[in-house]
């Protein structure tokens, strides 16, 4: 356990607390960015450079910008302090217990490392690229179809067409 790990943990935990304790949603969102960057630090410590970069670009970058935009566009008023209802309390404690049980199972569980490359290579960008274009080339190409489906679908749903059909004229 090195000094960086302790430092990152302190940042991650305090910013996570900030996410749920801050009154202003924008402040919560900013705390979440700090939290995500700290988690990216964990990945870098574990030699997973690519994952660390993706974590910052995708989560701390793209997704958080989206969250902040939504907060600004919806012009959300400061949430009134509401007392949590009994139902919410029961549901959240059930999920909390489930989470703790699950984590206790994972803690100390033996994970197989047989399929993992040597520690000096794993997670580096070069190694990832090599695996992606050999062993996982099919999945890599298939994800292109997935992205295409998402783009075409989004375009179809967002396209504002007049109520009248374009060319078919079959609707009476």
């Amino acid at each position: 356990m090195n000094i960086f790990f302790i430092l990152l943990s302190a940042i991650a935990l305090s910013s996570a607390l900030g996410v749920i304790l801050m009154r202003n949603p924008i402040h919560s969102a900013l705390c979440l960015i700090v939290n995500l960057v700290a988690i990216a630090g964990y990945f870098a410590l574990l030699n997973a450079h690519f994952l660390a970069l993706v974590q910052i670009i995708v989560y701390a970058g793209a997704i958080m910008v989206l969250v902040v935009f939504v907060l600004m566009l919806l012009n959300s008023k400061l949430e009134e302090q509401k007392s949590a209802g009994l139902f919410m309390l029961v549901v959240s404690s059930v999920f909390a217990v489930m989470f703790i049980v699950h984590m206790s199972k994972i803690y100390g569980a033996e994970f197989s490392t047989s399929g993992v490359a040597s520690a000096s290579l794993q997670g580096t960008v070069a190694n990832l690229g090599r695996v992606l274009f050999t062993q996982y080339v099919f999945s890599f190409e298939a994800s292109a179809v997935l992205l295409m489906a998402a783009i075409v679908g989004a375009a179809m749903l967002a396209k504002t067409t007049p109520e009248r059909p374009r060319g078919d004229g079959e609707r009476v």
């Binding site: 489906a149 075409v152 679908g153 375009a155 179809m156 396209k159 067409t161 059909p165 374009r166 078919d168 079959e170 609707r171």
Partner: peptide, 14 residues
């Protein structure tokens, strides 16, 4: 088309 689908090309692509 009768059921209200406008973008037929996109529909068949999907």
């Amino acid at each position: 088309a009768q059921e209200g689908v406008r973008s037929l090309g996109e529909f068949y692509a999907l």
